Simulated scan of single mutants.
Amino acid sequence: MRKKLRVAAYAVCVRDGQILLARSPAPDGPPEWVLPGGGMEHGEDPYDTVLREVTEETGYRIEVTGLLGMHSVRHTLGREGLRRATDHHGVRIVYEGRVVGGDLRNEVGGSTDLAAWQHLDAVPGLNRVPLVDVALGLWRERPVAGRFTDVRE
């Protein structure tokens, strides 16, 4: 089985009771709301990754105001026989951020198609990836170990 490691950095930006999210089109279903952020490029520091990714996906420039924690997830993708199976291990670094400049806009030609502020109380009703719940758990609970596990995955 092929092994793949992906390290990514994301930002939780909350202001006036709303969280900044981006929408990711899904190939076989409705779009999902995601945190702004994404994969590190080779040689890139995670701090620089989150600054770059938030700007790419939302148009905003942010200031990182804290490290909320990390989340690790593993999935087996594909199946032996049909295509080579992959043991995918994702390590997600979650920062807290504050918008300091730029203008809200949608990403063009990227992994997301819409950026928007969503009310925190509306998040449970959104079609979203599990990382949104993980990140909000880290943001709310501020666990000393930087790990929050009480979410759907």
Rank of each mutant, 00 (worst) to 15 (best):
D103S: 13
G38Y: 08
P143T: 03
T65D: 06
T49S: 07
I93T: 02
I19E: 10
H71Q: 02
A145H: 13
A8I: 01
P124R: 09
T65G: 09
R6D: 05
E53T: 03
Y10K: 03
E44S: 01
R79K: 12
V144S: 14
G43E: 10
V94H: 01
H88S: 11
L67Y: 10
D133W: 10
S72K: 14
R52E: 00
P27F: 10
L20M: 07
R147M: 06
V7E: 13
H88E: 12
D121I: 07
T86I: 15
T86S: 07
D87Q: 11
V134L: 09
E96Q: 13
G66M: 06
L35Q: 02
T76H: 14
N127G: 12
E96I: 00
V7M: 08
S24R: 15
V12G: 04
L51T: 04
R74I: 10
V108M: 12
V54M: 00
V129D: 04
E57M: 14
N106T: 11
P31H: 03
Y60L: 02
D150G: 05
I19V: 15
D121M: 08
L82A: 12
R74Y: 11
Y60A: 03
G43N: 09
G137A: 07
V73M: 08
A11C: 05
K4V: 15
G109D: 13
I93R: 00
G37L: 08
G38Q: 06
A115Q: 08
G17T: 03
R2C: 04
T76F: 13
G97W: 01
D113N: 14
V91W: 01
G43K: 12
R142L: 13
E53C: 00
R92H: 13
E57H: 05
V12M: 05
E107Y: 00
V129F: 11
G78D: 12
V123W: 08
V151Q: 04
L136Y: 05
S72W: 12
V100F: 05
E107I: 04
I19Y: 06
N127A: 15
Q118I: 15
G78W: 15
H89R: 10
G39D: 10
L104N: 06
Y10Q: 01
M40L: 15
I62H: 01
L21P: 02
R128N: 07
R15E: 15
R83W: 09
G101I: 02
